[in-house]
Design a protein around this nucleic acid. Structure first.
Lengths: 188, 188
DNA sequence: CAGCATACCTACCGGTCGGTATAGTGTCAA
DNA sequence: TTGACACTATACCGACCGGTAGGTATGCTG
């Protein structure tokens, strides 16, 4: 592992454990066994390091998400594929998923929130497009795509958070439950 | 407003906007128009200040919650009262609710998370007792009170978060939707 | 009036923050 | 052989961190 990768890996672990604000660059370079100028050579700033970390990890998620999210006329199927993509990603990157959740709920004027905001909005936008497409078949859904996307993402994140804390498993039956529960809440 | 209250009020605003770690005590005392030793006179430490803030605000929530949570044989009614208590509290204290959410999702080894942990567990415990009581009437619920409580709290917080961001209103119809959606997810 | 506790101040502590100037080092291409 | 360049170390910057020492004004209690 080269120094750049070592810095990214140490930063992920420390940020996920203690939070972005609570971890100084000195601690990161010590854990990565390099010195500060090495970090600044590759990432320019502490914020730049966080951004690089998010880009590398979210890249994988967005790729899986874009494959899963195509609307083929069956909303339930599409949603199941989306939840499945989220669950797989969270299982493979539990530390990163925790970090990402903490940034999504971070105070609006914090640096971590603002760096993560773009990535959150891109998730939201992907989901909204799915619900807009679905509204083409079911007119009663029209005009609610923002709330649907936010609710769906929130429910998914809620189950992931619960399972990351050890109260459950991210398996197929939970995927089905999530989707059914969401659709019931929408159409009841 | 005396100095103690001014410090608490300034701290709440700054913590909610920027996060606990990102705000130094100097900034708090400047906003409250007092000096640092005044803060340390009343609260002992930065952590003590956060604790006092949580105790004062969560006190109101727990009071409302304990009245709402009694199980009278109708789970749906009890849950509706609980959601209603949460919604009312969040509407009255939007800044604090944001702060509380951010701490609940904060990294596990951060100071803010650990100070808030007790209060989160007390919420969880209150809800668990309700589900244990309800399982006395419906044996199929037995043994799942932890997951039920976590799921229910997560859904409620999810809707509160969405509404605090302006995508919706914390009204009676959303209370009903939350409860129905949760019960459907449990019994389907 | 004495004695004391509360409340609050100015001034300062050692340490850490994010970030940088400078000086090598090894590896290439010319 | 030489110069360019990517990379990394030492040493350092000013600003700020959480916290405290020491002192004073005020007001209550005997």
């Amino acid at each position: 592992m080269d120094n750049q990768a070592k810095i990214l890996s140490s930063a992920l672990e420390l940020f996920a454990q203690h939070g972005y604000d609570a971890v100084g660059v000195q601690r990161i370079v010590a854990a990565a066994e390099v010195t500060k100028p090495t970090l600044y050579h590759y990432f320019g700033s502490k914020k730049g390091l966080l951004l690089a970390l998010l880009e590398s990890k979210f890249g994988d998620l967005f790729q899986a998400l874009e494959e899963a999210i195509a609307f083929n006329g069956e909303l339930q199927e599409s949603l199941s594929r989306v939840v499945s993509a989220y669950f797989q990603f969270a299982r493979k990157n539990p530390d990163f998923y925790r970090l990402q959740l903490s940034m999504w709920f971070a105070p609006a004027h914090s640096e971590a929130f603002n760096v993560a905001l773009d990535f959150s909005l891109r998730q939201q936008a992907l989901l909204e497009r799915l619900f807009v497409d679905a509204a083409g078949q079911n007119k009663s859904m029209e005009g609610h795509h923002q709330i649907y996307a936010a609710t769906f993402l929130g429910m998914t994140n809620n189950y992931i958070g619960i399972c990351l804390n050890g109260f459950g498993e991210l398996n197929q039956s939970l995927i089905d439950r999530t989707v059914h529960q969401f659709l019931y809440g929408i159409f009841s």
